[in-house]
Design a protein around this nucleic acid. Structure first.
Length: 690
RNA sequence: GGGGCCAUAGCUCAAUCGGUUAGAGCAGCGAACUCAUAAUUCGUUGGUUGCAGGUUCGAGUCCUGCUGGCCCUACCA
C-alpha cells in the first residue's frame, strides 16, 4: 500500500431511465481509473448512487400508479444489475432518497444559511391544477407567440428558434394533464453564488482541478477578467428550492418547499460514502474532511456547472474537502451521429449484453478515451475490427500460439534470454501508468499494443512450431514459450484495469494470480502451465447488426394537434416535418416494386409496443410476412381482407419478433396517426403500382 | 445574442516550446508464414493539415477573418 487515499465518484444516473451505452462511457472510464489505482496499491474507494428526486419521477410514478419509492427501487436494481454485468465495481451504491442523504443535506444547508448566502424571493411557477403539481418549463407546450407553430416547448420554439417564457405561449397546455397551467408567484430560496466569486475563480483557474478547456469555458462564461473592458461577470443566484408537491426532501426551515434535485444529488456522493462507512467502520471525516484523501469526480460535460461551481461552493461553505479533480468527458456518438432510437443506435446496456461481451466495450472505450472532453465515436465497423485485431488477434493470440507447447509442464526455472524484451516492457511500465493516471487510456492501450506486436514478432522469428519437430530442441521450445507467456502476462497486468477478466484468465493459465502493477516487473519462473482455453471470441458483424436491429424503436411522433382551418388550406407541418428528398430518376423509382396486396392474416405481437404481424397475399399463393408499426392505429380484425400497397422487393429484415419481408405503405407521423394507402375498387392483389 | 471547444489520410486519432521528409491503428493492395480463433510477420498505396490572409529564417502549431461541427448560456453573460 502506498499512502495515497482516493475517493472516486461517477455521476448519479437518474432513476427515470435504463442505462445505455452512452452512460457506460463514464462508468467504464471511471471503473478503469479506479481499478488502475487499486492495482497500483493506492487505497481507493468508488461510490455512486441513483439520483431519485424531481418532477419527472413523480410523473412517472403517477402514470404507472405506483409510489415514487417503488419506481426508484426497481430502477436502482436494474441500474446495479447493468453496472455489475459490465464489471463496474462500486464500493457502495446508494440513493439520494436515503436517510443519510437527508441528514447531510440538512447539515450542509444549515452551513450555507449560517454563512448568509441564502436569500428568499418570489418567483413565477406554473401550476397544473388538474395534476396538482408545479411544472418545469419543458412540461408545458403551446403555440409559439412568434411564428405560431403549434405544440412547441415552454422555453423556445423548435421551428423559428425564438425564445420566450411559458406564459407567453399561445394556448399553453400541461403535457401531463392537458390543463391550462396557472402562473403563480411562489417563494423560492436562492444561493447567492456571486459571494463566492473570488473563491470559485481561484479554485477553477488554479490549473490543478480542471481540464484547461473547462477552466477556459468557465472564465469566458462567468468569471471574466476584472481588468478587461467587460469586467468580471456576475454569477447568478442559484434557485435551489421547488414548491411542494415535489418529490424531494422538504427544506426544514422553509416549509412547503423541497430542495431542487441538483442540490441533493451531489450530496448523494457523500451519503453513499456514509453508508459505506457505517458498514465498514470507516470514519466519514477521514474521506470528506481530510487533506490526506483525494476526491475525484468523473462526469459528463453536460453537468459541468453543477460540479465546478455550485458543488465546490457548497463544499467550501460547509467546510468539506474540495475535489482534487473533476474529470470531464464528452458524449458518445455512434457511427458519427447522436445515438438515435430510430436508427437502432440508442443501445441499452441490457440489449448489448444479449449479444456481446462487456469486455469488448470496455476495451473499445479505453482505446478511444483521451484526457480531453471531445465526444468519442463508436463506429460499429471499427468496433468489430478493433476488438478482433487488437484483442483476439494480437494479445490473446500470444497465449493461444504458445501455451499449448508447454501445457501440463512448467515455465523455465530461470527466465531465459529474450533479447531484452521483458526488460524493455518493464521500462515502459511507468509511462503506461502515467497515461492511466492522466485518463489517457487511448495512449496506454496503444503502448500496450506495440508491446504485443513485438512479442508476436519474437515468436514468429523463433518459430517454435518448427523446433518442436526435433526432440532435441524441446528445451528451446520451452524457453521460447516461457518468454512469450511471460510477455503475455505482462500485457495482462497492464490491461487489468480495462480487462479484469483477461487478467484473471492469465492468472489461471500460469497459476499465479495478478494482484499488483508490479507483477509486470518480474518474470514468472517454474510455475505450472494449465491447459489453454480460449479467453475471448471474435465478434462477427452479424452480432452487432442484430443488436442494432433489436434496438430500433420507432420515433414517437410529435403529437401535433389538428388545426381548425378550411379544408383546402392545408398546413405546412407535414412537409416541414419531413422535407422533400432529392430528385430521383424514373430508373430509381422502378427499383422499388410496389404491389397491391391483400391482408389475409393480421396478428397482434403481444411483446411489441407498436407492431402488428401481417400476412400479405400477392395472389397465386405468393405471400409476404410483414411487421408493421401500426398497432396504435389499426385493430388486426379490421385489416383482414382489405387491400394495401406494399414494397414487395424490400430486402428482408430480421426483427426481434421474426423476419419482416416487406413494408406496408402508410403516411402520417406515427402512433395512432398512421394512414394506410388504399386502392380504388377493381384493383387486385399482385398488380404493380406505377 | 454571448461564451467555450474543435476541424489533420477512406475511418478513428497522434504530432513536446513554433523546428528536418506531418505519424500510428483500422480498412485497401502485394508478399512470406502455417503454431495460433481467416490469427501473425514483412512490404506498400493513401495528405494543398476546412478556406483566405498575416507574423516568422521556419506555421498542423501563433494572430485576424471566414466556413462548418459540437457544447454551454441567454432580455442579465
Amino acid at each position: 500500500m502506498t499512502d495515497r487515499r482516493i475517493l472516486v465518484t461517477a455521476a448519479l444516473p437518474y432513476a427515470n431511465g435504463q442505462i445505455h451505452i452512452g452512460h457506460l462511457v463514464e462508468y467504464i472510464q471511471t471503473d478503469i481509473w479506479v481499478r488502475f489505482q487499486k492495482l497500483r496499491g493506492n487505497r481507493t474507494v468508488f461510490f455512486c448512487a441513483d439520483d431519485t428526486h424531481g418532477t419527472a419521477i413523480m410523473i412517472r410514478a403517477r402514470e404507472e400508479g405506483r409510489t415514487e419509492e417503488e419506481v426508484i427501487a426497481e430502477m436502482s436494481e436494474a441500474h446495479q444489475r447493468d453496472f455489475a454485468a459490465f464489471g463496474i465495481e462500486f464500493d457502495n451504491y446508494g440513493s439520494t432518497n436515503s436517510p443519510e442523504n437527508r441528514e447531510l443535506c440538512n447539515g450542509i444547508w444549515k452551513s450555507i444559511r449560517e454563512a448568509g448566502l441564502v436569500k428568499e424571493e418570489d418567483r413565477r411557477d406554473l401550476y397544473d391544477p388538474e395534476a396538482n403539481l408545479f411544472l418545469p418549463d419543458r412540461f408545458v407546450r403551446g403555440t409559439c407567440p412568434n411564428c405560431h407553430a403549434v405544440n412547441q416547448p415552454g422555453d423556445n420554439c423548435s421551428k423559428c428558434g425564438s425564445t420566450y417564457s411559458p406564459p407567453e405561449l399561445i394556448d399553453p397546455r400541461s403535457v401531463i394533464s392537458g390543463a391550462v397551467p396557472e402562473a403563480k408567484m411562489m417563494p423560492h430560496a436562492l444561493i447567492e453564488l456571486e459571494r463566492l466569486h473570488d473563491f470559485l475563480e481561484e479554485w477553477s483557474q488554479s490549473g490543478k482541478h480542471l481540464q484547461p478547456e473547462v477552466a477556459n469555458n468557465l472564465r469566458g462564461q462567468f468569471l471574466g477578467d476584472p481588468d478587461s473592458e467587460d469586467g468580471a461577470k456576475e454569477l447568478r443566484d442559484w434557485d435551489v428550492s421547488r414548491p411542494m408537491p415535489y418529490f424531494g426532501f422538504e427544506i426544514p426551515d422553509f416549509k412547503g418547499n423541497g430542495w431542487y434535485v441538483w442540490f441533493d444529488a451531489p450530496i448523494g456522493y457523500m451519503a453513499s460514502t456514509k453508508q459505506w462507512c457505517d458498514r465498514t467502520g470507516e470514519n466519514f471525516d477521514d474521506w470528506w474532511k481530510s487533506d490526506d484523501a483525494e476526491i475525484h469526480h468523473f462526469i459528463g460535460k453536460d453537468i459541468t456547472y453543477f460540479h465546478t461551481l455550485f458543488w465546490p461552493g457548497m463544499l467550501k461553505t460547509a467546510g468539506f474537502s474540495l475535489p482534487e479533480k473533476v474529470h470531464i468527458h464528452g458524449f458518445l456518438r455512434v457511427d458519427g451521429e447522436k445515438m438515435s432510437k430510430s436508427q437502432g443506435t440508442f443501445i441499452m446496456a441490457s440489449t448489448y449484453l444479449n449479444h456481446l461481451e462487456p469486455d469488448y466495450l470496455r476495451y473499445f472505450y479505453a482505446s478511444k478515451l483521451g484526457p480531453g472532453l471531445g465526444d468519442i465515436d463508436l463506429n460499429l465497423e471499427e468496433f468489430v475490427n478493433r476488438v478482433n485485431s487488437h484483442l483476439v488477434g494480437n494479445i490473446v493470440n500470444l497465449a493461444s500460439r504458445s501455451a499449448k507447447f508447454v501445457s501440463g509442464g512448467t515455465l523455465c526455472e530461470e527466465y531465459p534470454d529474450d533479447g531484452g524484451l521483458f526488460t524493455a516492457a518493464v521500462a515502459k511500465a511507468d509511462q503506461i501508468a502515467e497515461f492511466y493516471e492522466q485518463c489517457d487510456f487511448a495512449s496506454a492501450t496503444l503502448e500496450i499494443l506495440q508491446l504485443a506486436d513485438e512479442a508476436n514478432r519474437f515468436i514468429n522469428d523463433r518459430a517454435p512450431w518448427k523446433l518442436k519437430k526435433d526432440p532435441e530442441k524441446a528445451e528451446e521450445v520451452r524457453q521460447i514459450c516461457s518468454i512469450v507467456l511471460n510477455l503475455f502476462r505482462q500485457l495482462a497486468v497492464f490491461l487489468q484495469p480495462v480487462l479484469p477478466k483477461l487478467a484473471e484468465q492469465a492468472g489461471e493459465l500460469l497459476n499465479a494470480p495478478i494482484s499488483n502493477w508490479d507483477d509486470a516487473k518480474t518474470p514468472l519462473t517454474g510455475t505450472p502451465v494449465s491447459e489453454f482455453k480460449h479467453m475471448m471470441q471474435r465478434i462477427t458483424k452479424a452480432q452487432v447488426d442484430t443488436m442494432v436491429d433489436e434496438s430500433v424503436v420507432e420515433e414517437p411522433a410529435d403529437e401535433g394537434s389538428a388545426d381548425n382551418e378550411s379544408p383546402w388550406n392545408d398546413g405546412p407541418e407535414a412537409l416541414e416535418a419531413e422535407p422533400m428528398t432529392e430528385e430521383c430518376t424514373i430508373d430509381d423509382f422502378v427499383k422499388v416494386d410496389l404491389r397491391v396486396a391483400r391482408v389475409i392474416e393480421a396478428k397482434d405481437v403481444p411483446e411489441a409496443n407498436k407492431l402488428l404481424n401481417l400476412t400479405l397475399s400477392l395472389g397465386g399463393g405468393e405471400t409476404r410476412n410483414v411487421f408493421a408499426g401500426i398497432k396504435a392505429a389499426y385493430k388486426p380484425e379490421d385489416l383482414v381482407g382489405r387491400l394495401v400497397v406494399c414494397v414487395a422487393n424490400l430486402k428482408p429484415r430480421q426483427m426481434k419478433f421474426g423476419l419482416s419481408e416487406g413494408m406496408v405503405c402508410a403516411s402520417g407521423p406515427g402512433k395512432a396517426d398512421v394512414f394506410l394507402l388504399d386502392v380504388d375498387d377493381g384493383a387486385v392483389p399482385g398488380q404493380r403500382v406505377h
